[in-house]
Design a protein around this nucleic acid. Sequence first.
DNA 1: AAGTGGTCTAGACCACCAC
DNA 2: TGGTGGTCTAGACCACTTG
Lengths: 242, 242
Amino acid sequence: MQQQAFVEGTLPLYLKVRDQLAGQIDKGVLTPNTRLPSERILAEEYGTTRVTTRLALAQLEAEGKIYRSNRRGWFVSPPRLIYKPTHDYSFSDNVTAQGRVPETETLDVTATEANPWLATKTGLAVGDPVILLRRRRQIDGRPVLVENIYLNATRLPGIETYDFNRSLWKLLREQYGVELKGKRIEMYPTALVDPQASAIGVTAGTAGLYVTRCSQDGQGGFIEFDEEFWLHDALSIQVEVS
Amino acid sequence: MQQQAFVEGTLPLYLKVRDQLAGQIDKGVLTPNTRLPSERILAEEYGTTRVTTRLALAQLEAEGKIYRSNRRGWFVSPPRLIYKPTHDYSFSDNVTAQGRVPETETLDVTATEANPWLATKTGLAVGDPVILLRRRRQIDGRPVLVENIYLNATRLPGIETYDFNRSLWKLLREQYGVELKGKRIEMYPTALVDPQASAIGVTAGTAGLYVTRCSQDGQGGFIEFDEEFWLHDALSIQVEVS
DNA sequence: AAGTGGTCTAGACCACCAC
DNA sequence: TGGTGGTCTAGACCACTTG
């Protein structure tokens, strides 16, 4: 029942545990995607309880140094993917160019209509037909984002019949002759909640980055609105302007 | 000692508490910057313990719906500031334009030299003289970011003598005739750790957004490198390209 | 079946802030 | 000085994953 003294210069215990583990990660003793010892073992090693150990792990998770895989354990985070949302890079090409292995899964494709929220985001009228495409994307076997893509069904007739497990940008260019031009991007950090958290296989409340991207063709016509839910430790955003 | 049953359709208790509080925020019962009841009172209201209540509060914090003020309590988050890092907006003008009240405090100004890390970021040589300026910025009385600004001392002689509690961009333009042109921006979500967490007055480990911005003049000469540590719930980033 | 993280209890003392 | 959040203990049962 003894509490640790909180005198000047003394860190809380959970931050000491944090520092120890962070040191092992930074020094390369623990390498990306390595599993950490279980919470119970860590608690014993550091002479404390699971609650305190979990505080330390939550800190490292918030910093993006470790991640958890649903009831399988804690793992060291791999490097962040460099992502330039203003460019036309395909996810697959970008991931491959950085020496990683991408994978895309189509979750479902639905024909629907623009609701008021989507209408204000896209300039469509409420009720205009759209195709909603939901996909999950992985890097090196780890799901890192889910996305909802709203496609202008009027402008892209028959698009729901194609294979969406490949680059959408290439599909638009090759089948419809569309070159995406104008883009309006918005993003902010937030927690992933259901249904996105479940789709990505993480606990509700895991830190994430919410990114939306509205793309038009050269004539200013609306083509697609993309809503991406990223794990917060999986990416680093880069934007260049001149 | 009875545990809640985890049958189909039943949420964990901490998520029920979360939903209740979130509902009150969304419905406007709790308005921005309102203080929530204390953890002990919330725990009693929901018939649970502080630990579980804190889980619920941590969820809402991760989503950006509430924030904590060092040992003073939990508060409802105000709307996010819309921030366009590719534009030349001054912080003060931007905050004012959105109907909020900005404040800037200079923490310290130091003459130093470029280290290897800064050299790779800026194109300076290691050892080149730079002025390091640290500032804290507030919105409506709440500190929302601290920043480290590295200024090219060779290009901007005497800059350390000016008042930095106002717009740096205006100072550069009016006193040095500098128009910033090229920008390279990089950002990713991470936790705020000391010394930034202390400077902003939040617990180490609070979710944040790390933003760097490297600016040049029209001739490609390096002017300033800006490193910003934002509270994660304080901003929404917008970027437009055509 | 064994082990993992996920959730939860019922307390405790401490540092800090406002009154 | 009293109340707040911050940290911590020493357990418990549950759901899920893996062998």
